[in-house]
Nucleic acid binder design. Structure first.
Length: 294
DNA sequence: CGTCTTTGACCAGCGC
DNA sequence: GCGCTGGTCAAAGACG
């Protein structure tokens, strides 16, 4: 699918230090507090903050995403490459990010409790003691029935303050925190307990994020009312997958309100509260705090 | 009562 | 073949 006007703009603004395109709450030390998201920064800083706090988004992540049929159908590869470029600027890959096959590992420096909200609800399905480590590893699975993403959380043996999160089955969770989710007045009911037994699109580790092919026109076929978004109720795809959300993530200029998404205390910057109103709402984030069993 | 977490059991892959 | 290890399952208990 060809790039559209807003995709170019998106890339431009993403990389534009001045543009308030990305405005996210940022907390210097981060990771474990609060919903006092009063400090916001522009997109360039956003990237840096994101990177420094989360060390998320590996090159492979971007490449995989870029190569995926669904994303490329919706977003120009240039976007992904630009994103990669932007993140590389901040030495992302030097900050603990590593990759192994289809797994994506992030290291999160976090003193105290491990708190991480990547905007999605995870269900813990197992915990194992690890050889040569006093810290157990916890296994989580995305509760979205259409997502087969999994992640493992464990503390680093050499640095107790560092938590290692390994994502398997790219779901681009990193993007979710920047969405307004869990808005109290959301109207769309979401099954509290998406049964895994429900039809799951079989996904391979590398394409879980494309579990649900999107209609080509979803994003770029008509001019998306970017600027008028604030007044519109944006209807996300049923899965709330990245491809459903990116356009809304990108243009989120008025993070206003500080009304916070209280539960979204996150290792990543908390999702900005925005004027956007999604009809889709995530499941309750009752377990936003990773319990890594420590 | 429904949902989620815990945790021991089970299974598969791998190295010796 | 055997043992070790990592990953998953599923029953039981906890919790709201």
């Amino acid at each position: 699918m060809e790039a559209t006007w807003f995709e170019d703009e998106l890339v431009r603004e993403l990389l534009d230090d001045e543009s308030p395109l990305f405005i996210v709450p940022y907390e210097e030390s981060n990771l474990n507090t609060s919903s006092n998201s009063s400090n916001y920064t522009s997109n360039s800083s956003f990237l840096d903050q994101l990177i420094s706090s989360c060390d998320v988004l590996s090159e492979q992540t971007v490449e995989s995403a870029s190569n995926s049929s669904s994303l490329t159908s919706n977003y120009p590869s240039s976007f992904m490459q630009e994103l990669l470029s932007a993140t590389s600027r901040s030495s992302l890959l030097e900050r603990g990010m590593c990759k192994a096959e289809s797994k994506y590992t992030l290291r999160i420096k976090s003193s105290g409790n491990v708190i991480s909200d990547d905007g999605y609800k995870w269900r813990k399905y197992g915990q194992k003691s690890i050889k040569n480590s006093s810290n157990p590893r916890s296994y989580y699975r995305c509760t979205n029935p259409h997502c087969s993403a999994k992640k493992q959380v464990e503390r680093s043996t050499d640095d107790p303050d560092t938590v290692i999160i390994t994502y398997e089955g790219l779901h681009l969770h990193f993007t979710y925190p920047f969405l307004k989710m869990g808005q109290p007045d959301n109207t769309t009911p979401v099954a509290k307990k998406p049964k895994v037994s429900s039809p799951i699109v079989e996904a391979h580790p590398d394409d879980t994020h494309i579990a649900k092919p999107k209609e080509p026109g979803h994003i770029s076929s008509g001019p998306l009312p970017m600027t008028g978004l604030a007044q519109e109720e944006v209807v996300l795809g049923p899965q709330g997958l990245l491809e459903d959300m990116v356009p809304f993530v990108i243009r989120n200029p008025q993070t206003n309100t500080g009304s916070s998404h209280s539960s979204s205390v996150s290792s990543c910057p908390s999702p900005p509260t925005s004027p956007l109103s999604f009809s889709w709402s995530p499941p309750h984030y009752s377990n936003l705090y990773f319990d890594i069993g420590i």
